[in-house]
Nucleic acid binder design. Structure first.
Lengths: 183, 183, 183, 183
DNA sequence: AATGAATGAGACTTCATTCAT
DNA sequence: GATGAATGAAGTCTCATTCAT
């Protein structure tokens, strides 16, 4: 079995369950079925372990957006994108919990954040396209991106707080977000 | 001199500057010009201190929304609200930094969160009104609220990351958010 | 009301209930209905307060033995003594709990112990008498005294551990102790 | 080298020398030649460390009584027992000091006490035998046991207070105790 | 005399990290 | 490479004592 994977996986579970500062490295080692020294063979220290988890989730996020169908209308592509990312996190609540807790944390380095931004490259292209076609509002892309990001995270936060989610809610969210950014 | 205020104030500064987990109680005591024991006279735990700061910011937030002018159009009221809350945090960056770091943290108790939600009561009323007049989309209030909250927080995050903010950006954000929620 | 008495009384209760090291001075002050400073007016520090309680109990103990009837047989006087002291502690369990916990503690000073020993003066006389009459074993008085003391304390310990005490047990204890020391 | 043993041993010395509440864990660590963390690897709390010492002494006590010679008269066996336990503590004054200080302390848990009581099983048997043969008074065994325990502890307390012990004193004590319990 | 907020030394305890095996 | 016992710096929190009111 791949020790490194086991460590990353156990760490993710524990960090989100108990919080970063209630998760000793010893607990991660135990859960991963390794010795504590082994963790330090792969990750020079705790922060690096956490950053690697962060980057790995961003990487998985990215892989979802690889296949936009450029022949489809911008709105369709956007809906697909929005649905895909929401679905990704809904199906992996643990990724969301991790991101929510660590997004704003000083533990995540500038470098990790930069790597993370690669995951939105294709979305940027889509929006730029939309602007060229005068479908998307003529606002700085950064600002729009951040707006969409906010819509995604807050929806997910709301989603995981509900005991029973209406199927219509995602469509509502897509509508709101699209209305927000469309010309 | 009010020791409790001094402690809350120093704690707020340090917690946001150095991060929750790099701020020992001893540092807070020193900055507040008190002994460590004094802090524990007022706040039985570090967590309680943090929660009190959280609630106190929410309280200040609330005081801003007291005076909506119900005679004005819903859109005007909404714009005023949005501008007011953004202005509040832009003028108090430290409050934003604190909220950003702790919003999703397990340190903040259910009780504190509930108290915090009182601050949006008037906004809920405004939105409900807007729905009755068919100006606001007919979507569950909770979902709209969360959407607006996401727009606010992500805008602020973006704002504080810029080196130079264009004056138009706030208006852009208001437009996007209004377009998102209007019928 | 006598503040000093209130402090001594509250301290006794709390010290026995929660243990010496789980009883802060602040708790004693609160229970006594005084400020913490007031305690320090009467007792320069915590240890002195505890020692005063020790001595005061010993004093009460002593007052019980004042009235031996020297005209009665030694055995009768001894039985009376033994019954009296046991009764004293059985009726004041809190005194016993205090003594049990602090008897061997380094907190109790040599001086307090010496004062405490005054309470056995009359017993010493009784035993000396008994030896002269060849009723009591010819063993150093100290050793006999300590033996009797052990019998008393261990009986009390046993007594307070029982849920239901047989009325015969005290008589048994008297018999054993008398048989032990009689010629 | 066995760290755990070193810790237990250093702790025993310091606890009895300086008293439970004047012995910080750091001092124990230092004396044991370990880091403080090492102590907590073996003993989750200070209290647990103390309880383990308690139990370990009781265990040693027990091992002394394993070899009663049932063919000898009850009185002989009793004298042997009494002499053995006194000798045990006289030769290990530190064990006595520890027991004296902690016997009645709320630090010692019910569980530890129960374990400790195993050490008297063989004495109980001896006494029961004695009662069957009508050599020992027909009093509840518990009460007799507690009486003997008191005789032992008080004798030892006296013993360690003397500057010079007469060799006859132990015999006196045995006589007193035997006279007390014999029919 | 009475008060109790303030103090800070020092207690207990945790846990990231090392290193000998 | 894998291990986990050992480490000790650093954290949170307690509480005896003081002193200005």
């Amino acid at each position: 079995m791949n020790k490194k994977e086991a460590i990353l996986s156990s760490a993710l579970t524990l960090l989100t369950e108990t919080g970063v500062h209630n998760t000793p490295m010893s607990a991660i080692a135990k859960a991963a079925g390794t010795g504590m020294g082994t963790i330090y063979n792969y990750f020079p220290h705790k922060d690096i372990l956490i950053n690697e988890i962060y980057v790995s989730i961003k990487e998985k996020e990215k892989s979802i957006f690889l296949a936009f169908d450029a022949s489809k209308p911008v709105k369709t592509q956007f809906e697909n994108y929005f649905t895909a990312i929401i679905t990704f996190f809904v199906e992996n609540p643990i990724y969301f919990k991790f991101m929510e807790q660590l997004q704003a944390s000083p533990i995540i380095t500038e470098e990790s954040r930069n790597k993370g931004e690669e995951s939105v490259v294709s979305v940027v292209k889509l929006l730029a396209n939309g602007q060229k076609e005068r479908i998307i509002k003529d606002i700085e892309l950064d600002e729009i991106l951040v707006f969409i990001g906010g819509a995604i995270m807050s929806y997910l936060r709301w989603h995981f707080n509900q005991t029973e989610t209406k199927s219509s809610s995602l469509q509502n969210q897509i509508n709101m977000t699209w209305d927000a950014i469309k010309e």
